[in-house]
């Protein structure tokens, strides 16, 4: 990715109980990962209406990440 300078904008929807918690513990363990992700916390990925994903692309996301 860095070779051609492409820096994707990624929007993430994270489940409070698993993926958001995992992202927290990644921090606690000081794991390093690329800074392209912007996240929205939901109580469960069951909350995700498909329009959230489509709206994310409309707003310019290069990719959508859902973790639950």
């Amino acid at each position: 990715m860095s070779q051609n300078g492409f820096k994707p904008k990624i929007l993430g929807f994270l489940c409070n109980w698993c993926c958001y918690a995992a992202a927290d513990s990644a921090g606690v363990s000081r794991y390093q990962y690329p800074p392209n992700l912007r996240t929205i916390r939901v109580m469960c990925t069951g909350r995700l209406d498909p329009t959230f994903i489509l709206r994310g692309f409309v707003e310019g996301a290069d990719g959508i990440f859902t973790g639950g």
Partner: peptide, 28 residues
Amino acid sequence: VNIRDQCSWVHANEPEEATSKSKDLVRM
């Protein structure tokens, strides 16, 4: 807004990117 566990701690070597991520997250 989580700018520690999911930002400063995981982008420790990229202060500029981490700052701009923090701004985005705060804006959201």
